[in-house]
Design a binder for these strands. Structure first.
Lengths: 196, 196
DNA sequence: CCTTTCTGGAACAGAGGTGTTCCATTGTGG
DNA sequence: CCACAATGGAACACCTCTGTTCCAGAAAGG
């Protein structure tokens, strides 16, 4: 990331548009391929990205570099999503639903993060990311205000949200439930589950 | 399974006590090793079982045979658990909680079944096992009787139960929450989530 | 248009897992 | 106590994935 393989000339020079596009293609392909099969080979990823295996290695020297890059990518998107949800505004349950909605849109990417726990270890996602902490704070606020169930641990309510999101994704993926239907089932159930 | 490698003498002869014990040891070790790392090698399994790699191959000629055996084992346990829960008795929500409790006890084994989807394909677990169908029937009964939320699809409520179970296992495994605490959180939340 | 960047393919060595065979050793049960 | 069941280890060929190098051709971009 910091040390590029195009060292010479300037210093601020980032990455050519071509390279940026190729990088994204590989990253996106990796997400969908790895979601389907956690043990997929780099050859599979390359093929899915419409790119030579050599090129994948050119961007991500080792397998772990690719995984780390995915982790970083997801972390950024999660942070942005949490930001958009404005967790500090309005009633806690509604803020939680906004977050759920934002996260739902991230789809596959979060599914992958969910069941490939190594990603949490890779690429500086600490145990508690900023987004996780913000959610935890939100839950505590809701419990204080009496809008969220105060009798269970805040961490549990957090997990419940993730679990229902996961269920909704599965419903959409395996049962072919339309995305918006799955999401509204999720939100409805979440609303009831976290109520006092 | 049907065709043993001890063909001679009788016909009803099952398996020596020694062999049965070894088989179980391998199966159990495989579950815990594979739960920790889906891509673990047969060598790892053998080591965990306190058995030579050759011996593993003697019982399960190919990797897929071992996986299939795990699948079958889990399927049987699930069926027995569903049976013990007596899904046809009493109020639907309570029956659902009994099932949840039984499933929770299966621990690792179900976790594995959950995130190694191949198992569903291996070893004759059809899309809808008998236990799944019984649960679906239970949910429909509850909806008819007005004790379960009638406005959502029965399949969704089923998924919600699994999702909360999963969350409870994770809570126990990663946060070190005592098993009974995790279970009661799960049941409390489930009760609210599925209520009309 | 021509130079620089970027790419894909081939070919390679190495690592690690798999499945097999063979044999010496241990143990279990009659 | 003795035969036979059951085991563990070594050695084997084979496969797949990885990571690397090298080079010729395509694609940008000035």
């Amino acid at each position: 990331m910091g040390s590029d393989d195009t060292p010479a000339h300037g210093a601020a020079t980032r990455e050519s548009a071509t390279r940026a596009r190729t990088r994204r293609a590989i990253l996106d392909a990796a997400v969908s391929v790895l979601t389907a099969d956690h043990g997929a080979s780099l050859g599979d990823v390359a093929e899915a990205a419409g790119v030579g295996r050599t090129t994948v290695h050119r961007y991500f020297p080792e397998r772990s570099d690719l995984l780390a890059a995915i982790g970083t990518d997801v972390r950024d998107r999660v942070a942005a999503a949490a930001d958009r949800a404005r967790l500090d505004d309005g009633p806690a349950p509604e803020a939680m639903e906004r977050l759920c909605l934002e996260y739902f849109e991230l789809g596959d990417r979060l599914l992958l993060l969910y069941d490939v726990p190594q990603f949490v270890a890779w690429s500086g996602i600490e145990e508690e990311s900023a987004a996780d902490l913000a959610l935890l704070t939100l839950v505590r606020r809701g419990q204080r205000e009496g809008t969220l169930d105060p009798e269970v641990d805040a961490g549990w309510l957090q997990d419940v949200m993730w679990a229902l999101l996961y269920a909704a994704w599965m419903q959409a993926r395996d049962q072919g439930t339309p995305r918006h239907t799955a999401l509204s089932l999720c939100l409805r159930t979440l609303r009831k589950a976290v109520a006092p």
